[in-house]
Design a protein around this nucleic acid. Sequence first.
DNA 1: CATGAATGAGAGTTCATTCAT
DNA 2: CATGAATGAACTCTCATTCAT
Lengths: 191, 191, 191, 191
Amino acid sequence: MPKLKDSTKEAQIRDAALRLVIRTGFNGLKMAEVAKEASIATGTLYIYYTDKESLINDLYHKTKQEIAAVVFSSDYQASNFYETFRNMWLGYYAFCFQKPEKMLFVEQFLYSGLIAEHIVQETEALFESLNQFLIAGQEQGIIRTLHVEIIKAHIQGSLHEIVKVLLKNKQQLADGELDQCFDMAWNSIRK
Amino acid sequence: MPKLKDSTKEAQIRDAALRLVIRTGFNGLKMAEVAKEASIATGTLYIYYTDKESLINDLYHKTKQEIAAVVFSSDYQASNFYETFRNMWLGYYAFCFQKPEKMLFVEQFLYSGLIAEHIVQETEALFESLNQFLIAGQEQGIIRTLHVEIIKAHIQGSLHEIVKVLLKNKQQLADGELDQCFDMAWNSIRK
Amino acid sequence: MPKLKDSTKEAQIRDAALRLVIRTGFNGLKMAEVAKEASIATGTLYIYYTDKESLINDLYHKTKQEIAAVVFSSDYQASNFYETFRNMWLGYYAFCFQKPEKMLFVEQFLYSGLIAEHIVQETEALFESLNQFLIAGQEQGIIRTLHVEIIKAHIQGSLHEIVKVLLKNKQQLADGELDQCFDMAWNSIRK
Amino acid sequence: MPKLKDSTKEAQIRDAALRLVIRTGFNGLKMAEVAKEASIATGTLYIYYTDKESLINDLYHKTKQEIAAVVFSSDYQASNFYETFRNMWLGYYAFCFQKPEKMLFVEQFLYSGLIAEHIVQETEALFESLNQFLIAGQEQGIIRTLHVEIIKAHIQGSLHEIVKVLLKNKQQLADGELDQCFDMAWNSIRK
DNA sequence: CATGAATGAGAGTTCATTCAT
DNA sequence: CATGAATGAACTCTCATTCAT
């Protein structure tokens, strides 16, 4: 019996690629560096991923899945729209702050044209229930009536940018500030 | 740093570089392609810019200057905070929608580590009066008291993301929707 | 040099290698493909052959032996020179037409410098009795007096090339044509 | 004005490639070695040829053209079929003996599947008048009636193989031997 | 100043061979 | 013996930069 294909290794590779790619972009990402960062030989990379593109595509897919799992965590379900929204926003904020590479990576590649269309669509589908949630809020007259894609863009865009500023300045939000940030998000959409 | 030669040609080069770089990132940008897109020979590029990095740095600098000129357009000065803010927001929105390459380019390179620190600082300084403006609003009790960097991040992040979604879907905002978007921005910061 | 393991498997490997190598040459031959074609694992290949070169050398040796066995088939011995020569020529023609890979392989590698000198010499020795046969024909005044190496080259070169043309065009020789081809060979050497 | 694309260089590259490729086959041919042999940088190779395949294709094309020019040299036209055929045969023999690389290269690649079909066809067309010549000989009852492709294969195959044997043994044919070799060729086809 | 051919270091990918299982 | 994952040197091709014209 031969050595068995190690499924840990695939995750190691993705972790390494993620760490490196956000610094340099797709074209700046060097497979040799990914290998070194993952502590394997270059050739081994190609046992797990046929080429750089497929590595990035899989990384995108898996990262989006992880984000969906965070946003839709069952812990966040509350009795009313506001509470649920608040839980989601805070949960996603915490995620972005703790794993900014994932936030940055996804942001960087969504509009890059490098992710295969079918993967983009599969991952968008993962967030369909978020759309449902927002539409329900609109129908109940809780939040403003505006195309949900724009609402999501508004919320996500501001959250991401805030996290980026904080990371750049190596700051953290005090509790009161965090509340204010959430307030900004909420005030912008509530009716 | 550019040498003082034909300044039309220099602008051609920057335009070409801008168009190309947002598709591919710094590492994907090919000097030969920039030259072709600018309708000059490769060698000529190096008369105007010593290397790729200096081209990108100059492009960043000039683009930020243009954005500052837009945001601080004297036309936008109004008699009260709200009106001025509204003019600025709408003006910047229009700019981003019409010249998304510039928005995307600046966004892509701000945190990239490729722009020389002194250039980042010089360009940040251009926006100092925006800080003043916001702080004045806070002192007058018009807008919420929160670190201005965060306020700016919130406003800019959401505006950019909305524009990106619209461009991706090749949509435009109807007038009412545009008002709503501004409302979201305003509601989030007003007291 | 092969180790003495499962001799069926060894033959499978050679068959696989032969099929593949004539399409691609030595450098294009991939050990992994040989293994797959032979329905074994890559590692197993190296139990039978220490490296690619030794595989090719053994294949060359065995193929030459097979050709010698064909040419010197006892069935071909006839009462006179002409008949024997004719039997040999027709037998070898049939062999080349049925197993062109073997003909092509041997032709491709003879002058390649990849076959170890001692193997080339051993295999040449197998054809020594062909030399004897031709010399006898010369001494009896049946065929022209010319260095036997040149006579052999003439006969073999033309026979091979005819087979190659036929295979390329997916044709076969009608009986009369085959006779003509043999006639060409015979007329060129007879006195 | 820039340095002008040097047409000598293209020929240098082909010469280098030809010298190397017959030793190693297509897959063994290393672009870096071709460059070194041609005394240029690797990158320069790619200014003249987009890739290895196109280099080989052009080399094939040009070599076949050269061979056609040799075979159809106007000097060889004589008053009768025999003389013309003799001139051609001797001329081609001399060519193969002096530039065996060209003979070997063409032989190696004709059936390799690496030469683009349109190039194979274009080059075959160059030899159409050889077919005409042979058919005329058949119609005049001078040579045997047999598919010209087979006649050509017979003549060419034996000539090539003889040259290969001679080169391998570092021999040359004495004048009498050369006559004998031509005689073999002639006797095989004459009626 | 302008040109584009030339350079060569460096990137992605392949594959002969090894070795843990 | 058999397996196939792992290795890393080597190969093809690219591209920032230089420089002869």
